[in-house]
Amino acid sequence: MKSGKPTPPHYHGHRDRLRARFLQAGAESLQDYELLELLLTYAIPRADVKEWAKGLLSHFGSFAEVLDASHQELVKVKGLGEYSATLIRLVKACAEYYLKEQAIKRRSIPSLPVLIDYCRTSMGGLKDEQFRVIFLNSQNEVIAEETIQEGTVDQTVVYPRKVLEAALKHKATGLILVHNHPSGRLTPSTADRELTRAIIQAAQPLAITVHDHLIISKQGHYSMAEHHLI
Rank of each mutant, 00 (worst) to 15 (best):
Q219S: 14
D32H: 08
Y83N: 12
V49F: 03
Y222D: 01
G125C: 05
T152M: 04
N137V: 09
C119F: 13
L168Q: 12
L186W: 09
P6G: 01
I199F: 09
Q149E: 10
K5Y: 12
C119Q: 07
L35F: 06
K78H: 04
E146S: 13
L175N: 05
V77W: 02
A225S: 07
F60V: 09
F131E: 01
R17D: 14
S111A: 14
G4R: 00
H227K: 15
L126R: 08
L23N: 04
L30T: 07
R21E: 07
H221D: 00
D68P: 05
G13Q: 07
L35K: 10
K78W: 08
H213I: 11
L40A: 05
G151Q: 00
G81I: 03
I176H: 11
A167L: 04
E82V: 12
H181V: 07
E96R: 13
A27I: 14
K100H: 12
L35R: 14
D68Q: 02
A167Y: 09
P160H: 09
Q204A: 10
G55W: 07
D48R: 04
E226S: 14
L214I: 15
A69W: 02
T190Y: 03
V49K: 00
L23Q: 10
P8G: 04
E129V: 05
L136V: 08
M224T: 12
A144Q: 05
M224E: 08
S122N: 04
Y97A: 15
A25F: 13
K169T: 01
Q31S: 14
T86N: 03
G13E: 11
Q149K: 11
A144H: 10
P205Y: 01
G184Y: 06
A27Y: 08
Y11R: 05
T147D: 02
Y159T: 05
H221F: 15
V210K: 04
P205M: 04
Q219N: 10
K54S: 05
T152F: 13
E37Q: 13
A53M: 06
S3I: 01
K127L: 01
A20D: 13
Q24G: 02
R17V: 13
S122F: 12
N180R: 04
E101R: 15
Q72D: 10
E82F: 12
N137K: 01
E226N: 12
